[in-house]
Design a binder for these strands. Structure first.
Lengths: 137, 137
DNA sequence: CTTAATAGGGTTAAAATAGTCCTATTTAAC
DNA sequence: GTTAAATAGGACTATTTTAACCCTATTAAG
């Protein structure tokens, strides 16, 4: 429950790396994987997802690599989650459709949706920058 | 990412049921499973977890069943998550131990922990009662 | 003493996650 | 222009987690 996937962790870590050790240059997946100790191939997939979402930008070819695609102040946890995991689908109404009139299944969908919105709002309000600052400060 | 498990969903739904349709009596797992359309056996496991956590109380034997173990105002989403899924372990530092000096792995653990605390605080602040009220109101 | 319920261990099936492998494309350097 | 180092991405496999099922014990009402 509410555990982040490893791919999300890789992405989060990589963004932090780019924002702290990758300023003014492009960083290869190999460097990040070596430094951090992640699987290069798998981190590569995460970077591709981040690139598609505009969070990272890439340079192809020799001397290529990744840099941030936008200011770190503008990257939220929700952005990274969306880029890597796709739309969060917290709600999975297990109630059979034909029972919907019997019990308050719409209430159910309703309040679990409310919960989802609360979590989503929190993630959207949390930038990577702010997380880094909280640790340092 | 951040998707609730079915068991958690079952538990949440059951607590709501007890709080709305189970007042002043005990409700069997069979009744809840039939009404809501869940697997009886699996819901039973969820109820056992809720009972161990004090969220539900049980009566054994014929005419037995479940009722709420505490006031619905006092049951939070975090309580149900903890009862059913165990301690939330959002953080799973994938960084190899011997790399910890090289990169800011403690920062990493630090800020993902900060994120964890934020989510936990939200779930703890959210009672089932408040969710139900938000929908109705 | 039979029946309807919770309690719970153990096993299996299905789904999601994590990781690997291979190939194509891009581009700097020689 | 050939080579080498990098991203891009499709396809596959292994592992882990989740969901579900089966079976037996225990409890208590009638």
């Amino acid at each position: 429950m509410l555990q982040v996937s490893r791919k999300f962790e890789y992405g989060l870590h990589a963004v932090t790396y780019l924002a702290t050790k990758g300023l003014g240059r492009v960083v290869t997946v190999k460097e990040m994987a070596d430094e951090i100790g992640f699987s290069q191939e798998f981190l590569s997939k995460a970077m591709q997802s981040l690139k598609r979402a505009g969070i990272a930008a890439s340079v192809q070819g020799v001397k290529g690599g990744y840099r941030l695609g936008k200011a770190i102040e503008e990257v939220t946890v929700a952005d990274i989650a969306l880029a890597i995991e796709g739309k969060p689908h917290l709600v999975r109404c297990g109630v059979k459709a034909d029972r919907c009139e019997i019990f308050s299944s719409c209430h159910h969908r309703g309040y679990i949706n409310t919960l989802q919105h609360k979590i989503q709002a929190l993630l959207t309000a949390t930038t990577i920058h702010s997380l880094l600052k909280e640790i340092e400060g």
